[in-house]
Write a protein that binds this DNA or RNA. Structure first.
Lengths: 155, 155
DNA sequence: CTTGTGTGGTTGCATCATAAAACCAATTGG
DNA sequence: CCAATTGGTTTTATGATGCAACCACACAAG
């Protein structure tokens, strides 16, 4: 089996997230959903992607509980795709991706939008990771610990 | 050409980041690099991936300036792969992926590690997005603005 | 009720990327 | 110098992607 090496059984939470949203198009669909798109045709025309791929990704996100179908909206009998709380929880990931590009992209002049605080119209600050006591943490300040090592048979 | 729809020309910074690190294995390689792995064989045996794919991903990351080759380290004539500042800048993305899994995974008991503050040995807080004035921002509090639209030089 | 149009998909290929294994060169070790 | 390890490349098979064509349903007009 070649199977594209599913990360389902992996205990690494990064791998587990990638299992759900690591596809090529998934995060872009979620980005558009966060900007308010809801209909199949809206995603398809905005992203310019093949309809079968869009269909497969939407179904995968439904299965993962990232999107939900709501039976109505503007009166028509069609359905719409809306983010669940789990889907909205992806927001920091999108922000992190955006800010990495803003900070390190080789041709930042090609970036066409900036994220601003709606209330003040000012750019947002960088995402920050803090300790429980409030200290700002970077890569060098953290480490990983086994969770609680329950009886984990290597079955 | 089918070409997998490269996002190179896209002005969306999320797409631009995904162009560099949206591959299946790239973020896992970076995760291991952040944990201290440096050698080809270390990545290959730790991740259990095919060597040709690892080779292609490492080269891609070198091209993108995420990794660099350093000619020595422990005295041997081999080379090692180390994160550049741009590569270390991916840290918030990894944290965001991890925290999303921790918060929303359907089977969180399978997650085998937690990220802790090295100094205190306590779990870290969630990533937070703040406005310039310090207010905590969520998805509903932000919007996107065109970067520098006014200059309408007719090409 | 029949035709027409737009939405929301599915189905077939052709092509590309990925995976596993075999192979190979250079390094190191004895 | 011979053998094993490291660090890959090549080969081949299969799964994923992309495009276009097709199809089902809703809705509106005649």
């Amino acid at each position: 089996m070649v199977k594209r090496t599913s990360f389902e059984g992996d205990g690494c939470p990064v791998a587990r997230s990638l299992e759900a949203i690591g596809d090529w198009w998934t995060l872009l669909i979620i980005r558009e959903a966060m900007l308010g798109l809801r209909r199949f045709g809206e995603f398809q025309s905005k992203l310019g992607m093949a309809k079968n791929i869009l269909s497969a990704r939407l179904r995968s996100m439904l299965d993962h509980g990232i999107l939900a179908m709501v039976p109505a909206s503007d009166g028509s009998a069609y359905q719409e795709y809306v983010l669940t709380p789990k889907g909205r929880g992806l927001f920091p990931i999108l922000v992190a991706l955006r800010q990495w590009s803003e900070e390190f992209d080789d041709t930042p002049e090609e970036i066409d939008t900036i994220m601003i605080d709606r209330a003040k119209g000012r750019p947002v600050k960088k995402l920050e990771l803090h300790a429980e006591d409030g200290r700002l943490l970077s890569l060098a300040d953290i480490t990983l610990k086994p969770r609680s090592a329950p009886r984990r048979r290597s079955a």
